[in-house]
Design a protein around this nucleic acid. Sequence first.
RNA 1: GACCGAUUAGCUCAGCUGGUAGAGCGCUACAUUGACAUUGUAGAGGUCACAAGUUCAAGUCUUGUAUCGGUCACCA
Length: 717
Amino acid sequence: MNEEKPQIPEVFLSPYDPTKHEQEIYKLWEESGFFNPDNCVKSGVAAADADTYCIIMPPPNANGRLHAGHGTDMTLKDILIRFNRMQGKRTLFLPGADHAGFETQGVFEKKLQKEGRSRFGMERDELYNEIYEFVMDNKGTMETDLRSLGVSCDWSRNTFTLQPGVVERVQKTFVKMYEDGLIYRGKRCIHWNPKFKTSLSDIETTFEDRTEKFYYFQYGPFVIGTARPETKFSDKYIVVHPDDPRYAQYKHLQEFEVEWINGPIRATLLKDEVADMEKGTGAMTITPWHSQVDFELAQKYDLPLEQIIDWDGKLLPVAEEFAGKKIDVARPLIVEKLKEKGLLVEIDDKYTHAVRLCERTGVVVEPQVKDQWFVKMDSLAKMTLDALDAKEFKILTNRHEKIFRHWMENPQDWNISRQIVWGMQIPAWFKDDEIKVQLDSPGEGWEQDPDTFDTWFSSGQWPLVTLGYPEKEDFAIYYPTNVMETGADLVFKWVPRMLMFGLYLTKRVPFKDVYFHGMVLDKHGKKMSKSKGNVLSPIDLGDQFGTDATRMAFVVANPPGADMPLSEDKVRAYKKFSNKVWNITRFILTSCHDFDPVTKVSLSQYDKEVLSKLDEVVKDVTKDIDSYKMYLAAEDIYHYIWHELADKVLEESKEVINGSDTEAKAARQQVLMTCLTTSLKLLHPFMPFVTETIWQELPENMKDAELLMVAPWPKGN
RNA sequence: GACCGAUUAGCUCAGCUGGUAGAGCGCUACAUUGACAUUGUAGAGGUCACAAGUUCAAGUCUUGUAUCGGUCACCA
């Protein structure tokens, strides 16, 4: 009995155990140097003049672990990369990490809080250096996570947003844009986060519907409505619509003596179309310092600006007896006072409106007027839309193209100043009323703007800085990159900025295709969140079921643009599949151990059918990946291996293999070996670890490459 | 309010340019010390949200209705 037991590698005698192999395999890949396309060329894996294929990794935040979103993100890209690398292209997956300015500083401030410290009162350099160390520690963890996901990126080109060359490049862009008139400094009404004390751009804020009290007050002959009485202390202008019949008897610019919160004031009527006749009484007063709409109106009529609420969210001396109070404390007191004065007309307590919040911290945003740097968006947006119309780049999902167009057609100027330390300092210098924009100090007495850039200002230039625009060879070789594959939530935040900077600086788009994936949800289709306790970490899933199984779960049934529910069951199913592949190998190796390569084989009809089925799968999988249908390719290869190769071909072959017809046997052996090696190749981009582990155990005469990672992709006949 | 999407088996979803429905998980029965119990075979289960229309023929195209979801806008 024992004599008959064929000699196959011992490792196949027990089920596949991912934890035993994954780290070792990644090390094997990394040490081979083939993540770096230069080495592929040197060793002949890729021809020196082969096509290039490049993806720039959306840099994960340096301050944290990878989450389920990264799981999809990295898996889809790594599939494309591995597929193209096996096709002999000069393939570059360029990794990096983002300093994630505001978000990281927020995380760090929480840490300070725990230690009973605060960033206020710390020296700029001291704070920066502490955050830097904190981030560098975490950055290493994040990179370990990337490795454990099997991401085949070129670590020799790893880039961090705050490294010197990158900072200088971003600052140079700022200077150039300033000189070209695309950046201006201006006093504008911006979104202010009073807790973290920084301004925010539109896209860093969200709305939340809240039901709050809406007050009607007597204001001279008018009744005005407001949800925010605390801003109204020095409102001196009433606005009504010019066509509003209720106010026809009053004239534009007519003045009134009005009894108000802290005594009489002189008010002026403005008739302007911004007033909405339908809303409330159709009459409103304006507070230009604390409302965007009012601010614009104030600009139009050249009205004075007065700050009512300070940078901490407390009332200023103009509020007299209420000065120094936080707005939520002051509001009821002010209403009470107006009521006592007989000026309160009505309270509507079913008023629902959207309150603007800081997206990251949930803090209610206070509009404030502040000197900030802005990017003029209209011409940049137009340039981008023109490129889209000219098909210089494609958005693969229609839906997102529509959303993208809609947004780009109505661009708002972009506030790029942030009052935080963790970021790239803006290269602008102040001396009295003078401003100079340049990298180095203009000399004695000049102070650099303490503000830093919005994170998206630097990450918008990511494809350029990582490839070393303008002078590095990489830029000449790999720009424009092939595809930007990223989360649909970045349709406004990141993607348009990269396109605008790319087009502005190089006249060329930074990538040809844009692939948006959806959000990873829990198994009931709900958002994953720590508070709900339904978070699945790709790293934990990998530890439990194997990285390959995790990767498959992230890609199957995950078409572009749609959200995807994920459950442990799904991952478990693909763990079974890893083992299935493992056992198929065991069976085939056992069946083929006595294969005599010199035997002249003549294929039976069935053999030919088997090979032609295999061919079909090769074509399907290749075509699907080429057209970004990784979700279908993964199912195709899964289905083929399990339900065709294992269930049918192997079952059919048992008789021939154990039979006495040596010619038929040899033919079948050869067919089986081809099926195995081809299947491993097709599956490799999706399940790199188990396929490479198996490949390393195959006898030399079955392989056409040392490493499966750089084995030639099978061609259909 | 504006725009967009979804509605197909118990659950989560595929179904490209129209020809009487598929996968995974789950469920039921049976089998199996034989590559693999991380298995195999067989099976139950759907008037493809509703209504009308185009067509020889409609989950598949058009229009409308309902329900759910998303994004943008709205702090008088």
